[in-house]
Amino acid sequence: MESAVRLRAAVTLLGRFPALAGVDLDISPGEIVLLKGPNGAGKTTLLRLCAGLCTLSTGQGWVLGHDLSSERRMVRRRVALLGHRTGLYDDLTVAENVGFWARAAGAGRQDVDEAMERLSLTGRLADTRVARLSAGQRRRASIASLVVRRPELWLLDEPHAGLDQQTRDTVDALVRGAAAAGATVVLATHELERIAVLEPRVVSVVGGVVRGDDPPDSQSPNSPSDAEDDRRVS
């Protein structure tokens, strides 16, 4: 069976900064992979590259069998990227946001209800404008609008950062659920001990390069704000 992610000497330039400086990585379908590494190591760019949002400057890459140089549109519709930004519209309600993204992905009414239920976004919360939500509620709404897409590859960038206990548990449940459903999960997080129970494969990213697989260990969490978040290709 083909790899979920397959990168060969992948280089991604953000402006003239080589965020990824030659990454080789293979991820099998159904794997849970944890990206570990210091801030600015290139984890966010690696996730965005796998989502088809960053370009491959040199090297080769395939995600879910699609070439990252020529078939990025095919990649994009099959993955879900949970980044630092929620992807929600402040002036729409939670239900409207989730409904919009569901219809954009061709999902039905029932998928919306299911996702809202799963992330406890029912009742009054569903009809509240996103602008009035707390950070944790926003993140849940953001996840719900990804769940409806039934992605085959989940790319989670610091999914626990800045959240309350309830939402952190929700994120863990999401990863478990996705893995149980056979999806591939790649996540970058500093909260290694939370994820350790899922027995992920730990991959360490340093200086824009994948350094190889490490045994899981709990290193002290750094500050969750990645320096490279604000560097975007424009």
Partner: peptide, 16 residues
């Protein structure tokens, strides 16, 4: 910049 970045990762120069 690429060479610098790779040095940061502790890799010698062997592109790709």
């Amino acid at each position: 910049a690429l060479a610098e970045r790779r040095a940061e990762a502790g890799i010698d120069e062997s592109p790709g």
